[in-house]
Amino acid sequence: MTARLAVWRTPKLYIGGQFVRSESGQTVAVATAEGILHACRGSRKDLRDATEHARAAQPKWAARAALNRGQILYRLGEMLEGRGAGEAADRAVHHAGWADKVTALLSTLNPVSATYVNYTMIRPVGVIAAVVDPATGMLGMVEALAAATVMGNSVLLLVAAESVDDATTLAECIATSDWPAGVVQIVTGTLSELVGHVNGLDDIDTLLRVGTPLDAEVALAAEQAGARTIRRLVDLPNPSIPATPEQLGRLAEAKTVWMSAYEPQGGAASY
C-alpha cells in the first residue's frame, strides 16, 4: 500500500466573502513543517477590491443588532475551537461578549446647561486596515479582527506570507460562521509592500498595528501617508492581552447628539 498522500490546501486571499487568487498572479513561497506553501502576494488591485467590499459591507454590519454581532463573533470562536486554535477561540469569545456591552462603558450622558438631552455615543470609524505582526500568530489576527469588527467596523487583515497557514484556517472559520461578505478580508503578502499599497488608498479610515509589524522606515512612511486623509493610527502592541474598552474606543468615534427636549411654555419666561 502506498502511504496516503496529503491533500494540500491552496492558499488564497479572502475578499468579499470569496476565496480568490491574487490578481497579481504571484505568490510568495513559505517554508512550513509540511513543506513549501505558496501564499498569494496581495497586490494594489487586491487591496483596492478588498477596500471596496469592506466599505460596502460596513454600514450594514454596524446596523446589525449588537447581540447578533456578538453571536457571530462567538460562532467564530466555536469554529476556531474545532480547528484546535483554543487560545484564538477564547479571544473571539472574549470580544464577542463586548459587542452589546462596550457601548454602555464608552457612552456618556452629558449634563449640559440647556434644554437638550445631550449624549455621546460611539460610532464605528468605518474601514480599518490591520497590519498584524507575524510573531503574534493566530492570536494577533483574531485580536485585530475581533477588536475591529466588534466595534462595527469592517477590516482588511494584512497578513505576512509566513502566517499563511493560520490565515487560511482563519478565513475558513470566517466563511463558516455567518459573517456577512465583506466585513472581513484577509490579504497575504509582504507586509511592507501591503502597507505601501494601503498608503495609496484614501478610503481607509484607520490603520491598526498589532504587535510591532513594521520596521521604522515603513511605519514612518505609513504615518506620513495617512496625514493626507487625516487617517488615524491605532496600536495594539501586545495582543496577548485583549484590547481594553479604552483601546476598543480608539477604533470608534465619539458622536455627540444634542436632542431637543420639551420645555413647557418654551423656557424660563423671564418676563
Binding site: S260, Y262, E263, G266, G267, S270
Partner: peptide
Amino acid sequence: RVDNAMVAARCARVR
C-alpha cells in the same frame, strides 16, 4: 408646529 427651545432662544436674543 412649534419648537419650544428655539422659541426661548429667539426671545432671549430679543431681550
